[in-house]
Structures are given as C-alpha cells and as structure tokens.
Simulated assay, not measured.
Amino acid sequence: MSILHRYWLKEFTRFFAIVQMLLLCIFLAVDYLSNMEKFLRSNFSLIQGLGYILLKIPFMFVQFTPAGVVLATIVVFSLMNRNNELLALKGSGVSVYHLLKPVVLVGVILAMTMIFLGETIVPYTMAKANHIRSSTLKKNKKIYATWENIWIRDGNKIIHINYFNPADNSISGITITSFGADFKIATRVDAENGRFDSGQWQLSNVLEQNNPGDEHNADIQFYDHKAFALDVEPADLKTVAKKTDQMSIQELKAYIHKIENEGYDATHYIVDFWAKIAFPIICLVMALVGAGAGMLSAAKENMPLGIALGIGVAFCYWVVHGFCTSLGYGGMIPPFLSAWTADLIFICLTTIFLVTVNV
C-alpha cells in the first residue's frame, strides 16, 4: 500500500470515529431522555434504563455506518481539496481517482463489518432490548411468545396464535379457549385467519365448540366469518412477535422456510432477508458519493456544501430504500427487487457522478 493510500486511510479513520461517536452520543441522549418517563413509570431505575439503551448501540452503529462513511469521506476529500493536495496530485500526473482504491477498500471492509455485527452481536443485544421493552417497560404480562408461537391471557381465555404477519397485521392459526368453573373448558374457537378491524378481530373459517369437554353435549358451529372482541391489538403483538433484527441471515432463512412449509405468507420476512444482504453494500456507494462530493470544485471553498450534498444523498437513499421495501411488503414488486432497487439506482447515479465530477 502506497504512502498516499495510508495517509488517506489514517485521516478517514480519524474522522469516521469522530462522526460515529457524535451520532451515537446524540442517539443515546435522545433515546434515553425520550424513554425516561417509561423508566420511571415502570419502576425501572435510570441505571437499568441506561443499560437498556446501551443494548441498542450495536444495532444503531450498523444503521449509522453509511452516514458516517459519507460524512467522513467528504471531510477528508474536502480538506485535501482545500489544501490543494488534489491539485498537487493532478499536477504531478497522478489521477485523483487513484485515491478511490482505499475508498473502495474502506467501503468493502465496513460492509463486511456490518454483516458480521448483524450475524453475531446485533441479534443477541436486540433480543435482550426487545424483551425488556415488551415485558418490563410496557408491562405486557398477558402476552408470552416463544420461538414459534404467541400465547395471550385475556381474562378467562387463553389465546394461541401460530403466526402474526406484521406487514398487514393479520394472524393465522388461532385458537381461543375459554374456561368456566373449576378451570373446566367452556368453549373453544379455532380459526384459520384473522384481521383487526374497528376494535375487533374478524376471524375467518371459524369452528366454535361449546362445552367440548362433554362429548355428548358438545355444540359445534361453523362460520365463514365471525367477530371477537379480545383485549389485544396488533401493536401488542408487534412487541412480542419475532423480529428480523433479532435473527441472523441463517436464522431468518430457516424461519422463512418454516413459515412457508406451514402455508403462511412469508413475504415480509423474505423482503427483510434480502434487505439484510443488500443494505451493507450501501457503505461502498456512500464512500464513492463522499469522494465525488469532496472532489467538487465548489467543496474547496465551501465544505458545508459538500457535507450537505452527502447528507442529502444519504437521506434520499433511505427514502428510496424504505419506499421500495414497503412495495415489497405489499407484494407490489418481488422481494429481491424491493431490497436491491435502491442499491442499483444509487450505484448507477454514483458512477455517473464520479465520471462527470470536475476537480
């Protein structure tokens, strides 16, 4: 590695660390203060609350990394531009695009780092944080979840849900068991699917059994659709439902396979599976965007302009990525395309930008 490349990597590492520390400190302050009321209301000490926030740092580090990459790259190139270092390179016959080699290297390394954290540390810390949030901060004692099922205690009823789809707030494989005196089963309701509408769950393909424990007096009724008023809403289920940020890529792939084998719609999880693979690639794109923005002639005298351009590009990426994944959740475009469209668009735009930029 040349001296020039080592110099650039040293400067980038310094500014990237500063940017990431600032972003994480802002996140810690905002998230801690916004949750302080919940901590106090739940008899959760402020020290425990800080531990809860710290559990989310690995996940936020991954989320902030693309922004840190683009900002640090812009600052390094803008300073080199202002100090006429880029002009000196050009005058010496060395193309400034020679500096893109360490830029690409940084983008690849950070993308691999994001994947590594997403496969190891992030699932564990987010599972702990989500457990604290659902069981302690929200005091959601009536809802219990295992790896594959959701159990709900609602008065004298025990509700079992085999699958909750967070994309459309639908449930599948529902069993509602009501108990009478001496904890004897009074009724049992089995339904194929259900949706929440106007404060009630609208269940479809319903089988209702009254006094099923008495084989001679059991009254069985079938309904295409029937409404049930249960003390649980989709927002409650989302707090305990299996979340993709708690799973590695391999775990998510296995979970998708299980859901599909049971006949449920796994579109939401398939989109997130491809998004887990596609999202880290944006580190490379943002690094190249930052290089192009820092090389602009306008950035030589006006560094804030280059920084604003980089922030604007990063914001546009998150908007496009969020919009495309939403289309994927809704089944309007294939899951693979919904996860990779933003990356493909910005790779093309970044290539054009680098080719046309004037140093």
Rank of each mutant, 00 (worst) to 15 (best):
F315D: 07
G292Y: 04
L252F: 06
G306Y: 05
P212N: 08
G290T: 08
P234W: 06
K258C: 03
E208D: 09
V289W: 02
D236V: 13
L237C: 04
W274N: 11
N210V: 07
N211V: 07
H225N: 14
H268G: 01
G194H: 00
I259V: 15
H257M: 07
V271I: 04
E215C: 04
D219M: 09
Y269S: 02
M303S: 11
I249D: 02
E251N: 10
V271L: 02
I281W: 00
E262V: 05
W201D: 07
V240P: 09
E262D: 15
G290D: 08
L309F: 10
Y255F: 15
A299D: 02
D214A: 10
A191G: 12
T244V: 12
N205S: 15
L230Y: 08
I282N: 00
N302M: 05
D219V: 14
I307E: 07
Q246P: 08
A254T: 13
A218V: 15
G194V: 00
M295F: 03
A293V: 10
G213P: 04
V189W: 08
N205G: 11
L203P: 03
G199T: 10
L288P: 01
A299I: 06
F315K: 10
G263N: 13
E301A: 10
V206N: 06
D245M: 07
E260M: 09
A235G: 06
V189C: 10
L305N: 05
Q246H: 07
S204I: 04
F228N: 06
D265G: 09
L305Q: 05
M295K: 03
E208C: 05
A293T: 11
G310L: 03
K276F: 00
I282W: 00
E215K: 15
A314N: 12
R188S: 12
S198A: 13
F273G: 01
G292P: 05
F222M: 14
D231E: 10
G294V: 07
L284N: 01
L284Q: 00
D190A: 12
Q202A: 11
D190E: 13
A266W: 04
F196E: 02
H216R: 14
A229H: 08
G199I: 09
S248Y: 06
A308F: 11
Y264L: 09
A278N: 00
Q209I: 07
Y255S: 09
F228D: 04
L203I: 05
G312K: 12
A229W: 02
Q209V: 08
V232Y: 03
N302C: 05
N205P: 02
A293R: 06
I256P: 01
F315H: 08
G310I: 01
K300L: 04
D190K: 14
A278Y: 00
K300P: 03
P280G: 00
S204G: 13
Y264F: 15
S248V: 09
G263S: 12
I307V: 15
L296Y: 04
A314G: 12
P280K: 00
I307P: 11
P212F: 04
L203V: 05
D272I: 01
S204C: 07
Y264D: 10
N217G: 14
A308I: 11
I249Y: 05
V313M: 11
D245Q: 13
